[in-house]
Design a binder for these strands. Structure first.
Lengths: 100, 100
DNA sequence: GTGATCTATCATCATCGCGTGATGTCAGTG
DNA sequence: CACTGACATCACGCGATGATGATAGATCAC
C-alpha cells in the first residue's frame, strides 16, 4: 500500500508533466510534442522514453510517425492512492502519538 | 489548469513519500519520524522543510518537540487534478491529430 | 536507387538534489 | 547558572538527472 513513487518521480518533471497534459486531450506524434513544448526533438524523445517505461504512455508507430497516447489507468490509480491517503488523514486528524 | 508539479516533485522522493504516509495515520514529532524511517535527524529535518514549503505538512511546536501533521487538502487537490486529466483522456481516447 | 523526414539511441556535459557533518537555537532540568 | 536533549540551519561532496549534439535506423517521396 505504498505510494507508486516511480510514477510520481516521472510526473515530477515539468516537461514530462506538460507532455502528459497534452496527451490527455488527444493522441499526438513526437513532432507535435516538439512543436507544442518548444523543446528539442532529442529532449522530447528522451522524456517519452521515461514516460513509456513508467507505463504512463503507449507508443503507436504509424509509418514513420509515432503516435503517443496517455494511459489513463495509471493516472487514476495514482490519484486513488493519494486520495486514499488524504481520507485516512481526515479520519484521524486528531491522533497524536506521545513522545517518550 | 496545469499540474501542480511542485507538489509532485516533493512527493517524488521515497523518504518524503514515506513521511507523508506515516503522517497520514497520525501526527508525529521529528524523533518519531527518525525512528520509523531509520534516516538521520538532519536528513529528516531537511525533508520536512521541503514538505513544509510545499504546504504538504504543517509544523506544530509543542515545547521542545515539534509535531507534524499532514495537510490532506493539498493531497486531495493533487488527486483531483490527476483524476481530471485521466477523465479527459477517457473521453477523447480516440482523438488523434493528423501530421501535416 | 537518392534524398528528405521523423524518430530513437548514444555519449557527454552541466546542473540539481540528496545525504552527511558541523554548528546554532530553543526548551526543559538540575 | 551549566547542561542535556530536540530540531533546525548551513556548507560541502557526490551521485543522479536533464539538456545537448552527433549518429543511426526507418519510412516516404522522387
Amino acid at each position: 500500500m505504498s505510494v507508486r513513487s516511480d510514477v510520481l518521480r516521472v510526473l515530477a518533471d515539468p516537461l514530462r508533466a506538460q507532455i502528459v497534459e497534452l496527451l490527455a486531450h488527444e493522441s499526438l506524434c513526437t513532432c507535435h510534442l516538439v512543436e507544442e513544448t518548444g523543446a528539442s526533438q532529442t529532449n522530447v524523445s528522451n522524456h517519452l522514453r521515461l514516460l513509456r517505461q513508467a507505463g504512463l504512455v503507449s507508443a503507436e508507430p504509424a509509418g514513420r510517425y509515432t503516435y503517443y497516447r496517455l494511459n489513463a489507468d495509471v493516472l487514476k490509480d495514482l490519484a486513488a492512492e493519494l486520495s486514499g491517503l488524504a481520507d485516512i488523514a481526515d479520519e484521524r486528524a486528531d491522533t497524536r502519538r506521545p513522545c517518550s
